[in-house]
Write a protein that binds this DNA or RNA. Structure first.
Lengths: 174, 174
DNA sequence: CTGATGTTTCAATAATTTTTGAACATACGC
DNA sequence: GCGTATGTTCAAAAATTATTGAAACATCAG
């Protein structure tokens, strides 16, 4: 599979053959993958972020694909996700169309954004539901115990809903 | 499929034909399912918990299976999960072998336990990894920027690891 | 003791999620 | 403006995760 001479096959693009991850890079990736897993973020996304996180400089599309050995589709979708979450940003080298990626400043902020994007919609959707449910429990002659439980649930939901926006201002446009 | 008369088929056990969920019960279940989804807890487990949560009294195995329309296997596994997380407990009616289930007192406490069970192992596993990684970055001449990032990551990890045990005493045996 | 009742186990199946790759769009350097 | 380097889309395949159901197991009432 490996061409005898790189020069011969490299007439056109000089496909660079990327280094596999170092042991440390792989270990860091496992860390990010584990943590991401808790929030339901797919492995490929965590791997991409990890690579950028430990990189000495911004990394371009082909390097990501090459070093992680994943498909173009995955890299594209993974970067889209990370971009949408505000976890990475791209810089363009002058005189090249190619984008190069790096993590944004604060991982903490990114995580809050990520959490918010998962939890907030659920909370919002639930608010009217919980109102109806508590109402229903009171109308039917539910036990005091159950009404107490449900009311507490609603209180939590409302409180979380207030609290979340305070944790960080919503991501602004660039 | 439906027998003409329940009495005829019910000679032996009087299979009780369970009521489907009320609208409010279903809505509450959706709430729990959504929230559980964030932590990767399967739908069936959330449904079981929800049923118990809104029930006026402890609920037995067959009722859970019947009202939720799920298999014995799912009910058994779901209860095992909830039991292991300390989210439900069983009471036995006297003179009956059958267990009846109800939610434990504090949902909040249960959630912390659940979170812990997901996050703690990841943190613990990661600790030595991160040490090695930071070490490696320093040994090789990584950029100050990267070393800074990795060091911060390790600090976080360590802090979280200290903090978690404080949030709630580990579940004690009964 | 024993047999029916109540529960667990687990291999097979179903459902869901993730990844791939080839076709399609875009825009930039020339 | 053209042609191609650069990225995106999306349907299909692969991988993962959840559910089922039948058989094994356990336990207690009689």
């Amino acid at each position: 599979m490996t061409p005898p001479s790189a020069k011969l096959t490299a007439r056109r693009k000089s496909r660079p053959s990327f280094a596999p991850l170092t042991a440390h890079e792989a270990e860091l990736a496992e860390f990010f993958v584990r943590m991401a897993g808790i929030l339901g973020v797919p492995r490929s996304v965590a791997e991409i972020y990890s690579l950028l996180y430990a990189a000495p400089a911004a990394v371009d599309f082909d390097q990501i694909q090459g070093r992680l050995g994943m498909s173009k589709g995955s890299v594209s979708q993974g970067l889209k996700f990370l971009r949408d979450q505000g976890m990475v940003l791209s810089v363009k080298a002058p005189g090249s169309r190619r984008e190069r990626w790096q993590p944004t400043a604060s991982l903490a902020a990114s995580l809050v954004t990520l959490l918010r994007s998962q939890v907030l919609p659920a909370l919002e959707q639930s608010s009217p539901s919980l109102d109806r449910i508590v109402q229903g429990a009171q109308d039917s002659q539910a036990s005091a115990e159950v009404i107490e439980r449900l009311t507490r649930l609603r209180r939590w939901n409302a409180r979380a809903l207030e609290l979340f926006p305070l944790m960080l201002p919503p991501p602004r446009e660039s």
